[in-house]
Design a protein around this nucleic acid. Structure first.
Lengths: 138, 138
DNA sequence: ACTATTAGTTTACATTTGTAGTCAAATGCT
DNA sequence: AGCATTTGACTACAAATGTAAACTAATAGT
């Protein structure tokens, strides 16, 4: 039902989530600090996001103000679910370990993760079952 | 340089990684236990993976045996990097926390993650900087 | 030997995505 | 008032993707 937010569109969304309510000029300026995209390209991306229902365009005189119609959390969760649904269940732990190693995580988040682990470790399975194959007839 | 492995292609790869060396019949059978795809569709996907260099087709009489040319780890890492590069740095911790909560992770992996956290928590930042906007001129 | 089945190759086609040009309306500046 | 600029809408177009039919060569069973 919901059209996907493509990688290119994600960059637009991040700016809007961060700045709250912005005109296209602001989006273009911020994007072009990181990406070598033409104005046109960025405008197309904005339009598509409006059409897909992820951005609201509020007519402000002759220009528009854009704001996000989907919470950042929601989008992130769906993106994250995508990843973890794509890979083998057995590998989830390793992926998480690597992610923590490779990224900055705040002390608070680390503590939170510690708590979660503590609460799960006692009845954590010795091994996780591979879910890459279809169920075998039993 | 490297063509992406698309979501549909991923399902094929997972079967090959899991089974090691398989004929198309096995792939088709396993895929169809989970997905309602025609034989033709699956054969197309296999061909594309061969063309993209992710599967090796070893001619075995008139049929082929397929095997993976890229390690599962490598593919998973790149997929994972994709996710974490797409989202705001500030949210990485939350994503990880949620992932641990929502998935089975083996006791060993949990311990490993605990170790990593322990080694990082002391100089973990109070907050992580948002990286959604282009660098501001300073 | 003949036929049904199987596996691989080719072709097809709509949709999505990345990327951008063109144009017209609205605005601001002089 | 007239022109330069900005902004949004429309059009374009190749490549990638999901999805699958058609055709062909080989094989297995009878």
């Amino acid at each position: 039902m919901n059209k996907a937010i493509t990688p290119a569109e994600w960059k637009i969304m991040r700016i809007v989530w961060t700045l709250g309510e912005v005109g296209s000029a602001d989006i273009i300026e911020n994007i072009q600090r990181m990406n070598d995209w033409s104005n046109s390209t960025i405008k197309t991306l904005i339009s598509r996001l409006v059409k897909k229902g992820y951005l609201l365009a509020t007519s402000q005189g002759h220009a528009n103000l854009y704001s996000a119609l989907i919470p950042e959390e929601t989008a992130i969760n769906s993106e994250s679910a995508n990843l973890f649904d794509s890979i083998c269940e057995m590998k989830v732990g390793e992926v998480i370990a690597k992610a923590i190693q490779e990224h900055q995580v705040s002390k608070n988040d680390l503590k939170e993760i510690q708590k979660i682990i503590s609460s799960q470790i006692d009845d954590a399975p010795k091994t996780v079952q591979c879910n890459c194959l279809g169920k075998v007839a039993d």
